[in-house]
Design a protein around this nucleic acid. Structure first.
Lengths: 236, 236
DNA sequence: TCAAATGTTTTTGTACTACATAAAAACGAG
DNA sequence: CTCGTTTTTATGTAGTACAAAAACATTTGA
């Protein structure tokens, strides 16, 4: 053990990172160190490649990553500029229910429940009659049709509208990205039950109730999901 | 208007996407279409490049992106395999308070408040004496030191422990990534006030209260932030 | 005959060169 | 001075070459 430990002190662990990985990190550090701000021009590819001691090829692989995330933009002759990335861009690209792990899927499902339960306070900050009426229209349109596909679309519309009413674009987009996950988990569970509180009940609460009423109503609305969650936790 | 519309029908809009962008999408579609699952082997680079009609260079720029997101892994001779990406990996890379837009920063700040408020239900699903004791130790250690740096570290430790107690790894990591944002916004606002409910009060509620007590307590604890939020909303 | 050592093949990783393209900049004609 | 043209320059793409590593095949020695 002592020998092994000595050895690991003497010999650096070989990093299995590729050059592109290293360059990506180095570029990040460089931007931070130089405190570049969005809009600032960056050195050209050849200069960067030479400074880093790598081929333009490798450098471009790293730049391609940053470009995908929206951290940099490039114009043909003008060169590259640092830019404000879309915070959810990288998330969106990965959010395919078929490839992410079941554990992560479950976590995201829970995350949505948590978001909905926490929405009340911010929602009530922004509340106005117009949006409540719009929400009511969505809630009332449920009864008319009975088809499963419509019910799901309506479910999405209702909850989506709630997020929209919270007035937080990032949150709304986040929720929208999470929809496939939510749908997928529900589909797997073969379950699309609604609790004892309906969408219309929630609208009424928004009209005349307070935050706590809404939270309690939302909990009851989501109760089947929480019950399932509780059962799952008990098993593990 | 009619003419313009006709024209846009006749002429395809020029896409400013680079080949790497296109190839990235095409690969995504390909994986989905073939319903590859994590672990499945992918064709080798040359075959893909030829099939797509691009140079290996361009293909590798696209692959580099997918590799960054953890969607694929490569071994030297064995080739590439599809893998389960880390859902938060892409998010993490972009989460630098200095480069993301102020609007997004504000959105994320709100998101954290929403998460904390929504945490109660899942938290109570997992509650046990051991974790409450651990949380209490953190809360009690506040009084001893008075330094600002320690207070901040303690604040982080307490809320981090709450997330941990919720038993959702993805959520916990998400919160941990959001910390710099939270810290940054607070720093900009030059404000680190606590509401009328302290960490120790929250611990007491966990011991003997119910979910609603905890939610109300958490709201009071975070009240200064909500007040600021309300003021901001009124301005805009 | 079996196993260890060695060689071969295959596929990714990296480098380099070359050229196309687009856009800014410089230049020139009126 | 302004409009149009040419030049320059940086990125985008293609292609070739080779290094490195790992699986596979082969040889050698007991």
């Amino acid at each position: 053990m002592a020998l092994k430990s000595d050895l690991s002190l003497d010999i650096d662990k070989i990093s299995s990172d590729t050059m592109a990985d290293v360059v990506e990190m180095r570029l990040r550090d460089y931007f931070k160190k130089k405190s570049f701000k969005p809009g600032d021009a960056l050195p050209k590819e050849q200069e960067l490649a030479e400074a880093l001691g790598v081929s333009r090829n490798v450098l471009r692989e790293a730049l391609s990553r940053l470009r995908m995330l929206g951290m940099i933009e490039t114009k043909k002759k003008r060169g590259m500029i640092l830019s404000s990335p879309d915070v959810l861009g990288g998330f969106q690209r990965v959010l395919d229910p078929l490839i992410i792990s079941p554990d992560a899927l479950q976590d995201l499902f829970e995350l949505r429940l948590i978001l909905e339960m926490g929405l009340a306070d911010v929602l009530f900050l922004n509340l106005n009659d117009k949006s409540i009426r719009e929400l009511e229209i969505i809630a009332n349109s449920e009864k008319k049709k009975n088809k499963e596909a419509f019910r799901i679309a309506n479910e999405i519309a209702f909850h989506g509208k709630l997020y929209e009413m919270a007035g937080n674009d990032t949150l709304k987009r986040f929720q929208h990205m999470l929809l496939p996950v939510f749908g997928f988990v529900l589909q797997v569970e073969n379950e699309f039950l609604s609790g004892s509180v309906s969408h219309q009940d929630l609208v009424e609460i928004l009209k005349s109730g307070n935050k706590n009423d809404f939270r309690n109503g939302m909990y009851e609305h989501l109760k089947p999901h929480f019950d399932r969650l509780e059962a799952l936790r008990k098993i593990n």
